[in-house]
Amino acid sequence: MATSPLAALSEAGVSIWLDDLSRERIATGNLAALIAEKNVVGVTTNPSIFASALSNGEAYAAQVKTLAAAGADVDHAVFEITTDDVQDASDLFRPIYDATNGFDGRVSIEVTPGVANDTAATVAEAKALWAKVDRPNALIKIPATLAGLDAITEVIGAGISVNVTLIFSLSRYQAVIEAYLAGLEKARAAGIDLSTIHSVASFFVSRVDTEIDKRLEAIGTDEALALKSKAGVANAQLAYELFEQQFATERAAELLAAGANKQRPLWASTGVKDPNLPDTLYVTGLVAPGVVNTMPEKTLEATFDHGVVTGDTVTGSYAEAKAVLDELAAVGVDYDDVTLVLENEGVEKFVISWNELLETVTAALEDAR
């Protein structure tokens, strides 16, 4: 029997990943404790997370000093620092990876956000990160931009496991699944063991509500205001329906029969931004078999403390979810524009965070010289 809401979530088929990583978490045993006590079976990172870790911690001082003495430039230093953290976290999660046949025990590291719209550069960086981390339980994060789609196919085709990030729209999610299947076909043609390739598709939730709620407030009618904070969950529920449909096709079935793994949906951006909403909304409202929910620590702790897990809250919800999106369109919310704005903002935010990370490391290298 489940001993906590997080345990109940795991029993319902949700893999709990922490949306954070720092050397301090690893060195102090904090991450190991979350694995042991809070059912955490994976970690995701992004440029913002690394920028925060390096700006707040003394844990990197010794390595920065060594890199400075060796004359490392800032790009090389960031590459070494971040991949070291991912290697150490991957080693910590290795027993879970082995026990789950590679589905969990995963640690994600993202390509430089500045290459999000450059297919060739994304592929080159993904391959470099994969080779450097050199752990089978790593995932290379690639944004689901238009340029990213071709990169996903190429990288999967090379036998590299991928976390596709920054997915906001159902149409883009369908294109991501297509890119994954095409990559598997390339890998199979190259003689690569398909069972060694894993992927998750990170579908963002709370940012959808934030953007749509802003537009609903601007419209201001009773009909519009009644739809506030419904879009994020509805959009994700329909993403799960799409996942079920696309991996039941003849094409997918053939690849699965050849040893391939389904690309699992991952709920990202699950921290609740609106203080008027339940702080576990994007966890307990999105329970379904075979999904990943990557949570900031605050959301993880809230779920552990008072989350109410009632089983599957996704399958069977599709008609209601479709009705929400139809009603949003009827009051004047342009879904395609919302998701395009969110994708562009997502890339821009990561570029800003990456630049902050470079500035932090540049200053640290100068201080150490």
Rank of each mutant, 00 (worst) to 15 (best):
E80P: 00
N30H: 14
N56T: 13
Q87N: 14
A70R: 07
T66R: 14
P47H: 10
S48K: 09
F79N: 04
F50V: 01
A89H: 14
N39H: 15
Y60W: 11
T44R: 02
T44W: 03
F50G: 04
D75R: 11
A62E: 04
D84T: 15
G57P: 09
K38R: 12
V40I: 10
V78D: 03
A62M: 11
A69Q: 15
H76E: 05
A68P: 01
D88S: 12
T45Q: 03
V64W: 02
S90H: 09
K65R: 09
T45F: 02
N56L: 11
V74M: 10
V40C: 06
A61H: 07
H76W: 00
V78L: 10
K38L: 08
E58T: 14
P47E: 04
A32N: 08
A53R: 05
L31N: 07
T82N: 08
V43M: 05
A59M: 05
A61L: 09
T82I: 05
D85E: 12
V40M: 09
S55L: 03
E58C: 04
A77G: 07
A59K: 08
A36C: 11
A70F: 06
G57R: 02
G71C: 01
A89V: 08
L92Y: 11
A36R: 08
N56G: 11
T45N: 00
A33D: 06
Q63I: 13
V64Y: 03
N46Q: 05
A70M: 06
D91N: 15
N56R: 13
D84H: 14
A68Y: 05
Q63F: 05
P47D: 01
A72I: 05
S48Q: 03
A33K: 10
F50A: 09
T82S: 14
P47L: 06
T82G: 03
S52C: 10
N30Q: 15
A59C: 11
P47N: 07
I35M: 08
G71E: 01
Y60L: 05
A32G: 00
E37Q: 13
A72H: 08
L34H: 06
P47F: 13
A61S: 13
D85Q: 13
D73K: 07
T83D: 07
V43H: 03
Y60H: 03
S55P: 02
G71A: 03
L54Q: 04
N56K: 12
Q63E: 15
S55H: 12
T44S: 06
V86C: 09
G71M: 04
S48T: 11
I35A: 09
Q87S: 12
L67W: 03
I81Q: 02
V41L: 12
Q63D: 11
L67E: 04
L92V: 05
V74T: 07
A61E: 14
S90V: 07
V43A: 04
E58F: 07
A53P: 04
D85C: 10
A36S: 13
S55R: 14
G42P: 04
L92I: 11
L34V: 09
D91L: 14
I49E: 07
G42H: 00
V64R: 00
D91I: 07
D73E: 03
A62R: 12
Q87T: 15
Q87I: 15
F79V: 05
A51W: 08
I49D: 07
V86K: 02
A33S: 15
